[in-house]
Design a protein around this nucleic acid. Sequence first.
DNA 1: GGCTTGTATTGACGTTCGTTGATGCAACCT
DNA 2: AGGTTGCATCAACGAACGTCAATACAAGCC
Lengths: 124, 124
Amino acid sequence: MSKQELEVIGQDAARCPGLSTAPLDENQAADLAKVFKALGDPVRLRLMSMIASRGRGGEVCVCELTPAFDLSQPTISHHLKLLRQARLIDCERRGTWVYYWVLPGVLDKLAAFLTTTQPAGVTA
Amino acid sequence: MSKQELEVIGQDAARCPGLSTAPLDENQAADLAKVFKALGDPVRLRLMSMIASRGRGGEVCVCELTPAFDLSQPTISHHLKLLRQARLIDCERRGTWVYYWVLPGVLDKLAAFLTTTQPAGVTA
DNA sequence: GGCTTGTATTGACGTTCGTTGATGCAACCT
DNA sequence: AGGTTGCATCAACGAACGTCAATACAAGCC
């Protein structure tokens, strides 16, 4: 855990079939809770939604996100940082502007984790 | 019982097709954020998992939940209350004991909300 | 170079959250 | 009735969070 980011959904999802499958151990719960906590703020949820609405490979410039809120620019920047640390989004600077996108697969993996009906082909 | 619970997933899910479908408005984001915030704590995630593992119609007595944690009994009771206020679980007193269960459909609706691939039959 | 624009970081503030011991309440049992 | 057990609520504490103004950084333009 040298870095601040977590890999929860990428790696843990393999040995963590689902919330309803079996009781989570402390480590799985701690990692996954960080992801849900990142989504547990209305501003961050809207940010995620605005970015995710662009679809696969879609990007959004920060200059489009910031004016959509009644919040200061540093606040939006802070929320974007938290979403990035939760490994939900990533960004790239391109000239003066910075573009954000949703990391591929994260949302669907999160959804699969919550689903109670057992997904068909899971190697348990 | 106070009426401070929310109905987010039950009613809003209808006019709120998905996180990636279109940018959420402030109200949708505020309501949904409360649900994710409820899941954004390791203790509450483990509680949810322990209860959800019982499957449809399954129940868990508080007396089974509390000793699974290194936390005081009031703390567990407090977390269960938050999960109940988020309309993720419900409970019933039966004699001396209190039993908790996952409200049917909530987890799958949450999962559908996160899924990026458009679900086939949305009317269900 | 210096100026301007877009974004991130810092430091500080008030608020919310997680936790606890103490207490209250409900249901059982003599 | 009194005593006991299971769970919820209360009051209070430190820690974490969301927000902002000020500042710093990065890149383009004059």
